[in-house]
């Protein structure tokens, strides 16, 4: 995998909108046959990066090669080989499910004989068979995303850009979606997926975390967790608000993530015995809590990478 040409290679990719730097000198490399996750808070530049990689936006600076094509020079050479599921539903509301798929099959010029079977296969795969004559605009949010996905995978693209493909999808469909994605990757495709779900991020082969346009962390989920530059202390308490506020003001604590009733305090790795130090500090302040050292999870990685900046 490592020796082959990458599906995506970006160097110093930058995009300005007026004074705003939406994407700032981004370097990335996505190997073929992998699922690459794109994480980051709202407005960090995920969609903008995808648009540049698809050739829809010109980079202000830097270069990007997608499937070996220079996207600044020859984006049209790319278009029949990629599929881009936009964050906002961009098929036609006033066309039915089947009409939308037929339209896409013709736009991508599937051979005439293959169009109908391909559409039927997609309807089945994305559980839209009984919706085939329903107008896309009247589908539920999740059904619409399944339709969008069916449409962009109809022509079997080598590379898929999926911008928050599961944001409105129920857990069952999300699981199916990921199984499908793995199937496609097994068949040789590559996918770049943006998501706000940590469980989805954990399934990616590699991740990039963006913050305010800059790449702040990248690597496989395992490596990112193993190499987290912080110790994680799990805090169980009946008063999470007060404890959290106290910890945030406590010098060695970098950030605090809340996971249900529990808190994860990220503490500078230089601090020896973090559990003891925090416990003592909390007790001094009269705050009741149970503390224990845990291994980092992806949420911790995300919080660490995107905190303050």
């Amino acid at each position: 995998m490592s020796g082959a040409a990458p599906a995506i290679e970006a160097r110093g990719l930058t995009r300005h909108f007026g004074d705003l730097v939406a994407v700032d000198r981004l370097d990335m490399r996505v190997p073929k046959g992998s699922i690459y996750g794109f994480l980051g808070p709202n407005g960090c530049g995920k969609s903008t990066t995808i648009r540049m990689l698809c050739g829809l936006l010109l980079p202000t600076a830097g270069a990007a090669y997608v499937l070996g094509v220079d996207v600044r020079r020859d984006p049209e050479a790319l278009k029949s080989r990629i599929g881009y599921m936009t964050q906002r539903f961009s098929l036609y509301d006033d066309l039915s499910v089947a009409e939308n798929l037929r339209f896409m099959s013709e736009i991508y010029r599937l051979p005439r004989r293959r169009r109908r079977p391909a559409i039927e296969a997609q309807l089945k795969r994305f559980r839209l068979k009984d919706r085939r004559n329903q107008l896309a605009g009247s589908l539920s949010g999740g059904q619409r995303q399944r339709l969008a996905l069916a449409a962009v995978t109809l022509h079997r693209p080598e590379l898929l850009f999926l911008d928050e493909p599961t944001s409105a999808v129920d857990p069952e469909s999300r699981r199916e979606f990921w199984e499908m994605l793995f199937d496609m990757v097994d068949d040789g495709a590559t996918a770049l997926v943006t998501t706000h779900f940590m469980d989805e991020a954990e399934r990616c082969h590699a991740l990039a975390i963006l913050n305010e346009g800059s790449l702040v962390a990248s690597g496989s989920p395992k490596t990112l967790m193993a190499e987290l530059p912080a110790s994680v202390v799990e805090v169980e308490t009946g008063n999470p608000r007060a404890v959290r506020e106290f910890l945030l003001r406590f010098e060695p604590v970098i950030d605090v993530a809340q996971l249900g009733s529990r808190l994860h305090a990220l503490v500078t790795p230089e601090l020896p015995e973090p559990v003891a130090v925090l416990a003592a500090a909390l007790e001094r302040d009269g705050l009741d809590a149970t503390l224990r050292r845990v291994g980092p999870n992806l949420e911790d990685v995300f919080v660490m990478a995107t905190q303050g900046g």
């Binding site: 278009k79 029949s80 990629i82 936009t86 961009s90 896409m104 991508y108």
Partner: peptide
């Protein structure tokens, strides 16, 4: 249009 211009 964002979808259309991503097609060939």
């Amino acid at each position: 249009l964002e979808l259309i211009i991503t097609t060939p």
